[in-house]
Design a binder for these strands. Structure first.
Lengths: 310, 310
DNA sequence: ATGAGGGCATAAGCTGGGTTTATGAGCGAG
DNA sequence: CTCGCTCATAAACCCAGCTTATGCCCTCAT
């Protein structure tokens, strides 16, 4: 009953992002201001009144502790800091747009003109981007998404519950035609503090095989590829049930791991994980679009397919 | 709940992201639920009560039209759809974390232990990631950021107002020592519908030089590099005053453009822009860390520097 | 000069989403 | 069989942010 639950001390560091980052509506408003050069015009565009926009921007500036726009009776322009903040805001908004595209596809399970079945990795990391691009070209296309492993994708296609599929893996499921649309690679990663992170000589397969790694559980696609590449030798340090858990564990320095390049792209870019060179281990796997044998994709399926070919 | 608010019937497309995407607090809560396997535990972690968490998750599910977690008396696990949504949510949260890291550096102009001066491109696209990585390794380091062009960076370093600088460009400003930390490339891009997008033969310098392009104004760093590479020949179709405006214009199909690889990475990944191959035009430029001649970076500056070397 | 128009700031009042507190119900373990 | 964990529901409450209604400032055109 006493409210001593909250240690009243410093809330430095972890104040929960949401308290320090303006909400999406505010960020969108800021982008509109940047584009239109006027608070009032931006307000109109996002469907609120001018005083509301004024207040929103002001409270953003208070929250961030930085002046973002130069107001003048002739309009508003971004300050230097505002330009930077706006660009960072754009990235947040784009991630939100990808979220929305994915969520929308997930919701419209039925009655969509294009039903896509995809493996988890592709659904997670590639599909939202494709959906955004598709929306830009063919705004009317309603897409629905079903996710599963290769076998599930094949089943959905063959039973007519999906029009187009995407799988990663070594072989094409029976009864399907396929085209390679890209390539994924498993890479060895370690936290920056790990000895391997500074390594310049490539790891040998034996070395990789005898070192305990943070891995997905047996049976997962990634684990299968790794085991096959090493000849069933992969030795687990910990086994976790999701790619995310594996990543988090690797980032925290628990040990090295082997993960899809797609899954760790961001961590590599921000240097929270480091790629470790390896030699003599075939860790590539093809990404393929698939469809029922003979039934060449047409209409919206063809549109989407043409977007995915790099 | 039938509301005939918007005349025009169709509320397809533009419903303003913020109405369709849960706010950051909700996304963070979802991530916590995924990690901890319990609504109550997640609630505790983000500092709200269990019923609030329950209600928040429920309203997310209503908003998205998809069940995200399987509740049981023994805890909560993500559904299949929940796994996907959570991964997309993670990307939004990471973008927000980068935003926060950048904004924080921008705010703490003075009295920071490490004062960084960076050119716009680096400040926009690379620094937030570095700051996140630095924070992961050295949580106590307070960083401040000043952005400007190469000359401004040099000035700040030489006057002692900054400890470490980052510039992109062909030469190192006088009075500074430097080390190359990466490489940027200008690339020719076009919207997917543009004829160049399907081109397989590389463009020749002449062809590029005689085609009107969407460009930054004369005097911008990007424009300078391009003009130098072409021998002053670049022909503008439109001249715009920000990288963002150029991108938006190119995406909308107004014409081809030449932009930093860093600036269009996301657009390329989602296929809103397509890279056009070019030959015989030297469009690379080095990214360098710089500091006052003789004053080797030490302490936090050295930490940051070591993070940036790929 | 001088008035019209666009742009931003301030003030006051209201609405509703999200929160807390309080309670109940299901399931498993000791 | 009871304790301890989980989640759901209900009711009261609080505050953030919106709208409406102004006013001031600047610029441009007459």
């Amino acid at each position: 009953m006493s409210e001593a639950e909250r240690p009243g001390g410093r809330r430095e560091g972890t104040g929960s992002l949401a308290h320090r980052v303006p909400d999406l509506a505010a960020l969108e408003l800021l982008l509109a201001v940047a584009r239109l050069g006027s608070l009032g015009a931006a307000a109109r565009e996002v469907g609120i009144t001018q005083p509301a926009a004024s207040s929103r921007v002001r409270s953003m500036e208070r929250q961030l502790g930085v002046a973002l726009v130069d107001r003048s009776p002739r309009g508003s322009r971004l300050t230097d800091a505002g330009v930077l903040v706006t660009d960072w805001a754009r990235r947040v908004v784009e991630a939100a747009a990808a979220f929305d595209a994915g969520a929308r596809a997930l919701r419209d399970r039925r009655d969509s003109r294009l039903r896509v079945a995809a493996s988890m990795t592709i659904a997670e990391y590639l599909l939202p981007g494709w959906l955004l691009a598709l929306h830009a070209e063919r705004p009317d296309t309603a897409v629905s998404l079903l996710a599963g492993n290769s076998a599930k994708v094949a089943e959905l296609l063959l039973s007519g519950e999906a029009d187009l599929g995407f799988v990663e893996g070594l072989s094409v499921p029976a009864g399907l035609d396929a085209v390679v649309i890209g390539r994924d690679r498993l890479i060895v990663v370690a936290a920056p503090g790990h000895p391997w992170a500074r390594r310049r000589r490539p790891l040998s397969p034996e070395e990789l095989g005898r070192t305990p790694l943070i891995l997905r559980e047996r049976g997962s696609g990634t684990r299968q590829v790794l085991d096959a590449a090493l000849g069933g030798l992969a030795r687990p340090l910990i086994e976790l049930s999701s790619t995310t858990a594996v990543k988090a564990s690797a980032v925290s320095g628990a040990g090295p791991s082997v993960l899809s390049e797609l899954a760790v792209r961001e961590e590599l870019a921000s240097r929270r994980l480091v790629a470790v060179p390896v030699e003599g281990v075939p860790l590539r796997r093809d990404l393929r679009a698939v469809w029922p044998k003979g039934h060449r994709p047409t209409g919206p399926a063809r549109d989407l397919l043409s977007l995915t070919r790099a």
